[in-house]
Amino acid sequence: MIIKSVVIIAFILIIISLGSALFHLVSHKNQESSEKTVKALTFRITLSILLFVFIFIALVTGTFKPHGLGMQMHMKKPVQTDGIK
């Protein structure tokens, strides 16, 4: 439950950062606004990388186990045939 909460909070912060960058990009065309846009996008990239590393570490350590459709497809054993087509 903690892992899901961290991921959800990170996604919300990423979206807020994107919104902030868009606001500063559209609102004014001066140097200060440009710097704020760059800072917001840098913050978003940093959050995205940290989220990726967090999920990767959770997968490697086994605290987070994928259980979606893709995992179910990989777990199925191939059907063996006796050479009859």
Score class of each variant (00 low, 15 high):
1 M>N: 11
1 M>W: 09
1 M>G: 13
2 I>E: 10
4 K>E: 09
7 V>F: 08
8 I>S: 15
8 I>K: 15
9 I>G: 08
10 A>R: 03
11 F>W: 07
11 F>S: 04
11 F>D: 08
13 L>M: 05
13 L>H: 07
16 I>W: 08
16 I>K: 07
19 G>L: 06
19 G>S: 04
22 L>R: 10
26 V>H: 11
27 S>Y: 15
27 S>P: 04
28 H>A: 14
33 S>R: 02
35 E>G: 15
36 K>D: 04
37 T>A: 04
37 T>M: 02
38 V>I: 14
42 T>I: 13
43 F>K: 12
44 R>Y: 12
45 I>D: 13
46 T>P: 06
46 T>K: 08
46 T>N: 11
47 L>T: 01
48 S>D: 14
48 S>G: 12
52 F>R: 06
52 F>S: 11
52 F>H: 12
52 F>C: 12
53 V>F: 03
54 F>N: 00
54 F>K: 02
55 I>V: 02
61 T>H: 10
62 G>H: 01
64 F>Y: 04
66 P>G: 06
66 P>L: 05
69 L>R: 08
70 G>C: 00
70 G>V: 03
71 M>Y: 15
73 M>N: 15
74 H>C: 13
74 H>P: 05
77 K>Y: 05
78 P>H: 15
79 V>A: 15
79 V>M: 10
80 Q>K: 12
84 I>M: 09
